[in-house]
């Protein structure tokens, strides 16, 4: 099991928004939900490898900015065409005002 990686400050992500986090050649998306919880997924859409951090967060949905494919960012579930493959999610914790992601 890999360790926890410091991704960003908790305040770096607006409520109901997403930011990009790059680490060791990989890219991730860090989300802050409307009820102030944090989540992390792979950073690229499973359809056409577009950065989800440029997309729109609506409740528990992230919508890809290129083709409007939708995922539940809490579970990674693809919500229908044009995305068919689920998004990988990662455990997240917030400590001392920082967001940590457990990357495998």
């Amino acid at each position: 099991m890999a360790g926890w990686i410091e991704a960003c400050g908790a305040d770096d992500v607006d409520e109901e928004d997403v930011i990009r986090f790059d680490h060791e050649g990989r890219t991730f998306a860090i989300y802050r939900s409307p009820d102030d919880e944090y989540f992390a997924t792979d950073g690229l859409c499973t359809h056409e490898k577009i950065h989800l951090a440029d997309g729109l967060v609506m409740d528990d949905i992230i919508e890809c900015p290129k083709h409007n494919g939708r995922f539940n960012y809490k579970t990674g579930q693809a919500k229908g065409a044009p995305v068919c493959v689920n998004l990988k999610t990662y455990p997240v914790k917030v400590e001392g005002g920082q967001v940590f992601v457990q990357i495998d």
């Binding site: 359809h47 056409e48 290129k66 083709h67 065409a81 044009p82």
Partner: peptide, 13 residues
Amino acid sequence: PVTWRWSHARHHT
């Protein structure tokens, strides 16, 4: 509606 949803995604790619 299915075919054209996918063709339009390609149009944007």
